[in-house]
Design a protein around this nucleic acid. Structure first.
Lengths: 249, 249
DNA sequence: GAGTGGTCTAGACCACGGG
DNA sequence: CCGTGGTCTAGACCACTCA
């Protein structure tokens, strides 16, 4: 054992050492790391220790690796998301995209619309009848070509049938705009925020590692009469976002 | 290899199997798991595979373990935190504690107050002069005897010197109440939410595992004149909380 | 004292992808 | 082809703690 006895196990110390290099900016996004065999020799430890150390960094989303491609630093820039931008403003512009552009990012979104048999969570949130369908507008938002978040908006199917919400091409006019024209303006939102590790679908769609925490944001929106008309489920990888609220009183 | 070829590596499958038992309620908080040697024999794999599998569950906060004590299920109940309770109401009651009690928990808080040389983040947030001190009211909140969150509130020292904020015994009257009596009522709050893995201090104070994501919540509060008077940093372990906001418009 | 988790060694084989 | 990450085996030693 060549360890200088910092009290920490070797794999933790090695991970901390490389994390510090990345955090300090000495290593940048895309920089290549030595191979596991090289690292094992450099530190005088077995491959298993290196595997555990890189595993820690992987979990934190610091690294990206693949067979034969080696291991590279993965550190994207973080964007701020003021939560009011979730509601497209009344001029029909996408406030989300505006916020990203204002921070120097180049946003894009893939939209697809499906009508589905809703799961129990959706049924309860939207107060649907048994057998009632829901229309979901699935957004995958990218910035500079990298997936940055998933935003799925569920509507009672009966409410949006035949409206522009069902048309995925119409990306400018959000659900808010369309619902208002139909006398269903959303005026109150109940937001729920959790954090957890990503599910399989989120891992593949967002291209994140299984250990990177995600922020899960749910918004249930109601009309002035209190009728729930939209349930929005968002997934934000924790290394790409910080979300903000403005609160009065 | 006895694996039924689900495409997943053995340690992932084994972890998923036990996660399912815990999620389904078949295993409850405090239930004991077999030893690693027993699991290795049951599954016909080496100890390393079991270590990796339990490691995954550990990271998710599903397990709690210690030398010779074995490994036990760790699954606390989750509380909802409506963010308006961060501001104690005007009757001098602790709205946070009321919210926890309403959900059947028994809350308690340890408070200690320190006057410190603020770090750069605090200096910038509170717009402090060079060398200006800050007073921090550190809260560790427990529910049913288990640590549930850390809430540190920073004030410019000059603003709170000699007030009840400096008295840690006075737990009922929050900073909001005291500042208002001194003509510094907070009326606007800027909240920032991130998620990440816990730091060493958070791991030890909250008794959480290094892999369990935490929700980091910052609130910068200003007076009607726009003067920042309090910076509140909170850490919520992701397995114990979901935080909610009510939004208009 | 002995069993347990925590860590580590020194190998091995496979799949995949770049040269 | 062959180097790489990904996974796994079959051991080992230590510290701690429960009986």
């Amino acid at each position: 054992m060549t360890s200088p006895a910092t009290g920490q196990p070797a794999y933790v110390r090695i991970a901390a050492e490389w994390a510090e290099r990345i955090d300090s900016g000495n290593l940048r996004h895309g920089d290549q790391l030595p191979t596991r065999d090289e690292l094992a020799e450099q530190y005088g430890v077995s491959k298993t220790v290196i595997r555990d150390a890189l595993g820690l960094l992987h979990q934190d989303g610091y690294l990206e690796s693949g067979t034969r491609r080696g291991t590279r630093v993965y550190r994207l820039r973080r964007f701020e998301l003021p939560m009011y931008v979730l509601e497209a403003d009344d001029r029909g512009r996408d406030a989300f995209e505006d916020a990203v552009k204002a921070q120097g990012g180049s946003p894009y979104q893939h939209i697809r619309v499906e009508t589905v048999a809703p799961n129990p969570q959706i049924v309860e949130a939207l107060n649907l009848e048994a057998g009632e369908l829901a229309t979901v507008r699935r957004r995958l938002r990218t910035i500079d070509g990298v997936p940055y978040c998933i935003v799925d908006s569920y509507f009672p199917h009966a409410l949006v049938r035949g409206t522009a919400i069902e048309n995925p091409e119409n990306i400018q006019r959000g659900g808010r705009h369309v619902l208002r024209e139909n006398g269903m303006e959303m005026v109150r939102h109940h937001d729920t925020i959790r954090s957890r590790r990503p599910h399989a679908r989120e891992i593949s769609e967002l291209g994140i590692s299984a250990g990177l925490p995600i922020i899960r944001h749910d918004r249930l929106s109601r009309t002035a009469e209190g009728k729930p008309v939209r349930f929005m489920m968002s997934v934000f990888p924790s290394d790409r976002w910080e979300i903000t609220y403005e609160v009065e009183r």
